[in-house]
Amino acid sequence: MKDFNDLLNTIEEPKKRERLEEIFTHISGKFPELEREIKWNQPMFTHHGTYIIGFSVAKHHIAVSPEAEVLDFFEETIKEAGYQRTKMLYKIKWSQSVSYDLLDKMITYNLEDKKDTTSFWR
């Protein structure tokens, strides 16, 4: 896969493809400084060469991965939004609404916390 469109074209169900595209469009509009990248066949947003947030698609959900430290920081907010959390991601079921406020806060947190980071991961 070369870009986000390649990934989106692999999603057969139109509603799922549209949902993910809406998320990507929201993030690009709100955070134009972020770069879209595909690494390990996963769409992600980076800034100055460091990872900010990534996504993957599963049969029953979208997985959102902002790194474990961010998940720990926002653990209560994730629970309040009704999302299931694992060690490295949280899941937005296809039947659930997307909390753009939570996404924005996580991205803002990572941008600030990693502003001087020179490596890809924390």
Rank of each mutant, 00 (worst) to 15 (best):
R85D: 01
R17E: 01
F4T: 04
T10L: 11
E33N: 05
T77N: 10
H60Y: 11
Q84R: 15
F24C: 04
M44R: 05
I92H: 06
K59A: 07
D116F: 13
T117F: 10
T108Y: 05
K16P: 10
V64Q: 01
W40I: 11
K16R: 15
E35W: 00
K39C: 02
D116G: 10
S95H: 14
K114E: 02
T118C: 09
T10W: 01
K105F: 04
K91Q: 15
V98C: 09
I92T: 09
R122H: 14
S28M: 03
A68D: 08
K30R: 12
P32N: 00
G54S: 07
H26M: 03
H47K: 05
A58D: 04
L102Y: 09
F73P: 00
E21A: 12
S99L: 01
K15A: 12
N5S: 10
E80H: 15
L34W: 03
K114F: 14
R19K: 15
H48A: 13
E21L: 04
F73C: 08
L89K: 11
E33I: 14
Y109S: 03
D72M: 11
D101Q: 11
L102M: 04
K115W: 13
I23C: 00
E112P: 02
D104K: 06
T108C: 03
K93W: 06
I27A: 01
T50V: 03
K87F: 13
T46E: 00
P32S: 01
I23L: 01
A58H: 13
T86Y: 10
E112Y: 09
K30F: 02
H61S: 06
D104I: 06
R36G: 01
M44E: 04
N5D: 13
A81T: 14
H48K: 15
D101F: 08
K93M: 13
A68N: 12
K2V: 09
E22T: 07
E13K: 15
S99R: 11
Q96E: 14
K114I: 12
G54T: 04
W121Y: 15
Y100I: 12
E13L: 14
T86G: 15
K105T: 09
A63M: 02
T117W: 08
E69C: 08
A63V: 01
I11N: 03
Y51H: 15
P43D: 01
I53C: 04
Y83Q: 13
I53V: 14
H26C: 01
L102R: 10
D113G: 02
T77M: 05
P14D: 07
D6A: 11
Y100E: 07
E35C: 00
K93G: 10
E21R: 14
T117I: 12
A63G: 12
N5W: 04
T86F: 08
A63K: 07
T86N: 14
W94E: 02
G29C: 03
Q42G: 03
T108N: 08
F45E: 01
L8I: 06
I107H: 01
S119H: 15
L34F: 02
D6I: 04
T118D: 07
S97M: 05
Q84F: 11
I27L: 03
P43S: 04
